[in-house]
Nucleic acid binder design. Sequence first.
DNA 1: GCAATATCTGCGGGTTCCCGCAAGACTTGA
DNA 2: TCAAGTCTTGCGGGAACCCGCAGATATTGC
Lengths: 238, 238
Amino acid sequence: MDVLIVEDDALHRAFLNEAVRAALPECGQVIEAENGLKGEAQARASRAEHVVMDLQMNERNGIEAARTIWRERPDTKILFWSNYSDEAYVRGVARIVPEGATYGYVLKSASEERLKLALRSVFVESQCVIDREVRGIQQKSFGNSPGLTDAEYEILVDVAVGLTDKAIAQRKHLSLRSVQNRLQQLYEKLDVYETPGQGSEGWFNLRTRAVAVALSRKVLNASAIERAERDLRQSAGI
Amino acid sequence: MDVLIVEDDALHRAFLNEAVRAALPECGQVIEAENGLKGEAQARASRAEHVVMDLQMNERNGIEAARTIWRERPDTKILFWSNYSDEAYVRGVARIVPEGATYGYVLKSASEERLKLALRSVFVESQCVIDREVRGIQQKSFGNSPGLTDAEYEILVDVAVGLTDKAIAQRKHLSLRSVQNRLQQLYEKLDVYETPGQGSEGWFNLRTRAVAVALSRKVLNASAIERAERDLRQSAGI
DNA sequence: GCAATATCTGCGGGTTCCCGCAAGACTTGA
DNA sequence: TCAAGTCTTGCGGGAACCCGCAGATATTGC
């Protein structure tokens, strides 16, 4: 029972290594990789079925690395260990989990106890463990925050990478007007008006404003946009 | 000679504490704060003149915390210790350094040696120490990356928070056409066209596209947008 | 002082965005 | 089956965006 650790921060990597050995004394090798790319390679080479994965990494982020790992071996058990509970990350992970795969999502701010427990639950018991806070985001509409539909989220992403209405319509096989309808919906959900307070008028360009709001609400983040961009290039740029 | 550590990650905080004590055996108390807000309070309370500051934090990020600390005591020596060398962060720091203040900027990926050296240089020798990689960004136009003018950067930020051309013109006391000129300039610098490859036409909305490109190029980041938004509310929302 | 360069400004117009209105197409449930 | 709701599509128009053109206004270097 080998364990692969994919984490770019040296301190955290060492900490994880120790935590893994403590939580799983029966485990075999503990392999380390310092970015997503090397993580993929190591997973392939070592055939480890247990992975602890950071999400925010330079070379290739955790979501993409996990996707390729799962594509090659869908029964791999992956525990995501991340600083953030951004909606964008949570969505990103949920989007790539294969049918019936076991995984976990623990925040770095969690106690060492929680981490070790999650390690055992996911790797030994094959049980999914999702952090409270993250769970709250999965079953959206938490607090007064939006809770976007998948359709709304998708159009948000398309807008954020910079596509025009027409281009989106074409990509999604919709009419121009439908795209604009969804946009209006999105604006409403994100609480985006053309004017900030009262009085004056015409302060905001709704399109870019929506992106700004989504970013500050953590519905979107830069890596989600980059992912979308790659998908775009791949599907249209051929 | 007390030292204040402002860092939200517990592991890094402990590591820093140890590094400070090792590099500055003559130092007095080492105080810790786990976010920008508490950091400001601690700086005020402890009257520490030496601060090690993380940049990316939840409650209040390092740039804002540093700004208020420097506003109260401009002779405070601050060593920024960050994961990233995003142009957005580098600009953010450069923007708030008071005349003649001594500070440093070290990446977390640097060796422990470099960190300790920087600690001594900044705190004892009152010498500014900026990491190589960061330096490269300060004196812009590195690689094929843009290297935006201040004017271009400012309009980029305004666009990114979602303002219309008219609103920007008003804020900046410019004519509408001038704003659009700067925008054109910006589009050119960021290499933003309305069409991605060849053939087809009208794929991109330049305005949002520019934001997307700036984000993925790390010229902008979410916290820079949030900062701009706060400034906006303050100046216009009164 | 005087060109050369860079910026600011107004005008005009083609395109896109934003959206109210209203008629079809689809799902849902009684 | 019919009604209510949601989603889609077309039309039309006012506003905003993007930009070429050209004159006015600094700023710079010699």
